[in-house]
Design a protein around this nucleic acid. Structure first.
Lengths: 209, 209
DNA sequence: CTGAAATTTCAAAAAGGCTTGAAATTTGCG
DNA sequence: CGCAAATTTCAAGCCTTTTTGAAATTTCAG
């Protein structure tokens, strides 16, 4: 009967502790997971009570979540109050996270590598030669990873094709149950009227930046 | 002439600041990148001088790097001194990191999800129903990602096949130069005698844990 | 336009993780 | 086997990141 309470608590705590690995703060991750555990959008009052957070903490967390496009703020009719609705289209969620982290973490690496390599070409000390060759290997690898990620971000979902191939390929050596094998990343169940967001065709002409 | 000095410094600093994103501490990342910039293995004395670190800091960093199999300790003949050689087989390096992080970060998520879902099946409040459905979507997604990663860890490198497909698929919209496009992850240049490590068939019967 | 409700900001405090270095341990030469 | 060189450990301190909450700002109903 109160299983949902316990599961919610465990879920919120797990997400909170995993958040840092994904580059988001514990509190921010907790807010998102708490919203995910509720059928309806919640306002900051509910978040404060449900998670024992200060008003400011909720505001900060929601701001970050909005920047990552992981939640959407909804104004309630006839009131100044705002409710927050979690994004439930997992493909979009993941794409948002991957895109932002790629910009912050991978792109600078690639740029730097491409600047450094020519600078080492003039020198012929053993260190310089070996170092340059290693940087080139690294450049090739990062460029490869980069193109894979670009493909995922652009072509939507690495294409049913490649993904299905890879899933099938690795299916032989699996553990217990056959495990569900969706061909595309699932869209989470959501309350009816929120479809307007997940699939909205009315949004900006594609968040490029 | 002293370009290598500047590039090394920039490389070490970049890696140091990126380390946390990858789940390793700044100092540890600096030690690894410094070793990468040298043709020959280095001992702790050299690391202390080169990076202005205390003896203990070097020891801690090298221990962590050894746990991740990112460096190997080599005893020097006729001395108590140990030299550290960076792993330069990028495929192995990445596999090590992915394997360890998967164990620490993904596996617990999957286990928990599979425990929580049944516990919510008894309840039929709107919250419980929606929450359970979302957890199921999540489980499907994580299971998919898990099988992809397993495939990479086992079948070596996602298979030339899938990888090549994906690279080709995303090659259309690229930027400046054609960019090198290796079909497999490159092995970094290394001093001759270290091949014994990168390819050694004499190691443990496969690091399982 | 006014005023109160709601949210956002940001400087300061708290928490958490990283680094240090002296002491303890290990190692292997003599 | 003893000793000294070398490494490892770990509690204490430092620094970065996260959180707080009171003040400033924004937003609308009236």
């Amino acid at each position: 009967m109160s299983e949902i309470h316990d599961v919610r608590e465990a879920f919120v705590q797990l997400w909170g502790s995993m958040g840092p690995f994904w580059g988001i703060s514990p509190t921010t991750a907790r807010v998102y997971s708490w919203l995910m555990s509720r059928a309806e959008p919640a306002d900051s009052e509910e978040l404060m009570d449900g998670l024992c957070l200060s008003r400011g903490a909720v505001s900060m967390a929601c701001r970050e979540l909005r920047e990552w496009h992981l939640i959407e703020a909804e104004k309630q009719a006839g009131s100044r109050r705002v409710s927050y609705r979690p994004a439930t289209d997992l493909e979009k969620v993941i794409r948002n996270i991957v895109q932002i982290r790629k910009r912050r973490e991978w792109d600078p690496i690639l740029e730097n590598l491409r600047e450094w390599i020519p600078r080492l070409e003039a020198e012929d000390s053993p260190d310089a030669v070996i170092f340059r060759q290693r940087l080139q290997s690294l450049e090739a690898l990062v460029a490869l990873a980069d193109s894979l990620v670009e493909g995922f971000l652009k072509g939507g979902l690495v294409g049913r094709l490649g993904l299905k191939l890879l899933v099938d390929a690795s299916k032989s050596g699996r553990k217990t149950r056959p495990a569900p094998q969706p061909t595309e990343i699932p869209v989470m169940p959501d309350t009816p009227r929120s479809d307007a967001w997940s699939d909205r065709p009315t949004s900006q002409p594609e968040d490029r930046s």
